[in-house]
Design a protein around this nucleic acid. Structure first.
Lengths: 224, 224
DNA sequence: AGGATGCTTCGATGAGGACCGAACTATGCG
DNA sequence: CGCATAGTTCGGTCCTCATCGAAGCATCCT
């Protein structure tokens, strides 16, 4: 019964299914609002709110108020690392590793991360956009390059429709260890991909499956 | 409400104070009996027994029956790593330690982490081994460098005895915010330190106390 | 201003689970 | 065998906490 840092307190915060789902959702690196997290966790808004104050109080989340929106995000890389560690154990200990399965593979290639594209394809896309100087990246901050407006207008992508959110944002990818593009631009690109039916969303999953011609079109526009 | 590995289940196992105390006690690396763990956790024997079956059922502990004694131990280094990660967060967000206390100081300098050395000394050692190119580190992956085999053979450390586990692993240190060396090599080095009596283990604690000549020897070999 | 949206607080309910004493099983010792 | 020690199972009590509806703030839009 010796005393150390209160590990039980932290672990029990993660130990509730609703809170665990929220934390999982936040592992993408983008801060989310209370309603989004309520949906993610499958609980009502009051319940979510209660969980969120506990997580914030407990030091696992940070809160950024922007107008009437309150964005919750992981408190830092250390917290993310802890969740990864727990996930690792859960995976090792949990029900036998079913074969990687087509879904898992597809998830690595491309999936939805809140409202934008994540996975290998998304990481490659951001790389290419930065290479071509359409976007300018400075560590985790991404800005539009000089040719961005005309470039995206030309391919029919409009990202000025939701002025509240940042246009660009770096979002750490879970499968690859690199960043992909979030923000309204990221969201607009995902919209475009789905609208043009280059890809469809796997039902009840985050996986995004490209059709062969869709993949060609996507790669021609974003990876060439 | 998407599905992944059941992180809430694992975290809630750690999230009970009694169980957390037990796991903490087992971080020393030695397996303990149910009664010892009951004492450690400050609960009655029946209660401890119930907790222990949950932990074992949940895959966090392994059970070795020897006669009428039943020895419980951590299920593996991955579990130990997870607990260290949680401890790190708890330490970071927890209330400021009122009084560091002598034992805490010793714990920061050097302590046992499951089966290998942790603390400032261990972090410095890994840094030095990487500097000298004896180990090659790539993010969280650590491999043996070209001169590793001859180097460790020369100082009498044999790490090929447990082929099942990885030889090297990075393990995040909660006191410092950096990694130290785990894996069979890490375990072999700790063995060496205790065998040569460079240091002794504090009774009922994870702290490792170096004797003055032992510290010299250790620093000459690993930190020079 | 007035209405809409995003979120939190309050109050009541209900379920899960931590806890212990007592009884039970298993192993070891003479 | 009988007794002691180590552990588990059982039954019952109690308390925490997750949950939701309704009401209350706060901010934004028109």
């Amino acid at each position: 019964m010796r005393e150390g840092p209160d590990i039980a307190r932290i672990a029990s915060l993660v130990g509730d299914p609703a809170r665990a789902n929220m934390l999982n959702a936040l592992m993408g690196g983008t801060a989310l609002t209370a309603s989004e997290l309520a949906l993610e966790a499958g609980v009502s808004l009051p319940t979510a709110s209660s969980h969120l104050s506990k997580l914030t109080e407990g030091g696992l989340l940070t809160l950024a108020s922007q107008g009437r929106h309150r964005y919750y995000g992981l408190a830092g890389p250390q917290v993310a690392g802890m969740i990864e560690a727990i996930t690792g154990v859960a995976e090792a200990v949990g029900p036998k590793r079913v074969r990687p399965g087509p879904r898992d593979g597809a998830m690595r290639v491309a999936r939805v991360c809140y409202d934008h594209l994540a996975g290998e394809q998304a990481v490659a896309m951001l790389d290419r956009l930065v290479d071509k100087n359409i976007l300018v990246r400075n560590d985790n901050e991404i800005r539009l390059g000089p040719s961005a407006a005309s470039h995206f207008a030309a391919i029919g992508i409009d990202f000025y429709t939701k002025p509240r959110r940042p246009v660009c944002r770096a979002c750490l990818d879970w499968s690859v260890r690199r960043s992909h593009l979030a923000g309204t631009l990221g969201a607009a690109i995902l919209d475009k991909i789905l609208l043009e039916k280059w890809a469809r969303r796997e039902k009840d999953s985050r996986a995004v499956i490209f059709s062969p011609p869709g993949k060609q079109a996507f790669e021609r526009i974003f990876l060439s």
